[in-house]
Design a protein around this nucleic acid. Structure first.
Lengths: 110, 110
DNA sequence: TTAATATATTGCAATATTACGATAAAAAAT
DNA sequence: ATTTTTTATCGTAATATTGCAATATATTAA
């Protein structure tokens, strides 16, 4: 087959997988880190920063946006992309919760 | 092409992308959550828990292991899989750091 | 209006992922 | 030794991702 059976999993699981998947490419990690580094919301400069062609970057931005990890707003004839803070908080909490639960365990396995 | 240009990105970026990619499938999120839920390190029970065939689960486990998100140790004729706490801490800190940096910003964009 | 600038979309080739039946491997139980 | 149990691997089909040239779109500048 090839298609993932997302209907068999919960809404939350699918949302999280979508977010993680969007971060599952070094170029997209690099984009997030670039957006974090630049105080102002830089847009097309990402193309100059990364070793990828403009259409490729545009596609990566689209995927980050679809996963709700970044936001984009029209700013003149350019577009201002920036990190969606809420999404990052969500991820932080998700992994924080996992770490908490693991720490509470008495039994250490493996 | 199709292959990702991982050589153009930093070691850290690639490692993180690999971890995120491994979590980028609902079945693998479900596996992590199942390992978290069961106090003891359940192994083959995952097959009974998820709506996927045994070879598929085995493959997903392999990817989680390759990304260093879980550990597996032989336990009789079964295998005890469990979450790699350090990996989860790494992810928590990564997103925590992003959230911190975003919070410190005066300018709110988008 | 026309040209320039910035970003998105289309189309396509190369490659990777997902899923599973069949089968192998390895230890435990009989 | 044979069977059972548990997990891994192989082979393969269906689908998704990655990357980019070419092109479209949309806004600003001239």
């Amino acid at each position: 087959m090839g298609a993932s059976k997302s209907d068999h999993f919960s809404e939350k699981q699918n949302t999280l997988a979508t977010m993680a998947k969007a971060l599952g490419h070094p170029a997209r990690i690099a984009i997030i880190e670039f957006l974090l580094k630049t105080e102002s919301c830089i847009c097309g400069d990402i193309v100059n920063e990364l070793p990828l062609a403009q259409p490729t970057i545009s596609q990566h931005l689209k995927e980050l946006k679809n996963a709700d990890l970044i936001k984009g707003s029209v700013e003149g004839n350019a577009i201002c992309y920036c990190i969606n803070e809420k999404a990052m908080e969500k991820l932080q909490h998700y992994f924080g919760n996992i770490v908490n639960k693991l720490e509470k365990r008495k039994t250490t396995c493996c």
